[in-house]
Write a protein that binds this DNA or RNA. Structure first.
Lengths: 137, 137
DNA sequence: AATTTCTTGCAAATGATTCGCATATAGAAT
DNA sequence: ATTCTATATGCGAATCATTTGCAAGAAATT
């Protein structure tokens, strides 16, 4: 699957390939979500500044999207055609972030109708609470 | 109106009244939204640490609620019974934050149904784009 | 007014993110 | 394969929001 191979993604987007980028993108594609410091924890030999710079580069290319700012840091996710825009649930107990089933943000549904006359380019929906697993244990 | 008078709000919540708190709460009640540094810009004689401490205190009392983290800082709004939970629209051009009409977050609507088996305690909905005024100028 | 408790201001610490710059590397050209 | 040029990286320092420790000041209680 082309979109899930770091080297292909870079080539398709005309982004120069480096060892650091291939490694980082590999993690990003696998992860449900990630932050700069989480990535760097798994790739200690890659400089944090490099991680930040690469995340921004991918964000500008639409390869990565911002999810939310939680617990003092920014979280992102890899964008995939099989993973359209959707909300997230953040468990305040175990600090895990779950994807919610996609809402149809782009049709004239209740969400967008709500925005009145503004032109909406991005929708971010975060729910916080206690996840199922934490409630049951 | 009791809920709109800083001194009443503090008294009703059993929060000790100080000059700084009355001044800050006055601004918070008037503002559509606010950040710590915005408040301090209008009340330069109040220490920034005091602003942060007071915001957290009010948040714990449910008097203030977190809206979003935008442009590197946290934004909040004063909670009022005439102002139930609602989404916000952030204009990326003029950096203004608009309130959207309230969504019925608490009924079993599309949003909450989406959360599956998690217990939702807080919903945050942010749309980003270009506001009407900016589009027309 | 005295006492106790909580709040403030100040300065320093923290932590995420960004920046400058010299060096290293990728990809293109030879 | 070697050379060349543009770009990426690592490192250290800077920045910025937010938090913390602590001594001095102010609120509420007696």
């Amino acid at each position: 699957m082309i979109r899930c191979n770091p080297e292909n993604v870079l080539a398709m987007s005309g982004i120069r390939k480096t060892r650091q980028r291939v490694d980082l993108l590999g993690l990003m594609i696998e992860a449900v979500s990630f932050s700069a410091s989480q990535l760097q924890k798994d790739l200690p030999d890659v400089d944090l500044a490099t991680v930040y710079r690469f995340i921004h580069l991918l964000k500008n290319h639409g390869i990565v999207r911002e999810i939310a700012y939680l617990d003092g840091q920014q979280f992102f996710e890899y964008v995939c055609e099989h993973h359209p825009p959707h909300g997230h649930f953040y468990c305040e107990n175990c600090a895990r972030l779950f994807c919610l089933p996609p809402l149809d943000f782009n049709q004239s549904n209740v969400l967008i109708r709500n925005a009145g006359n503004h032109r909406v380019e991005q929708v971010s929906l975060i729910m916080k609470g206690v996840c199922k697993a934490c409630r049951e244990s």
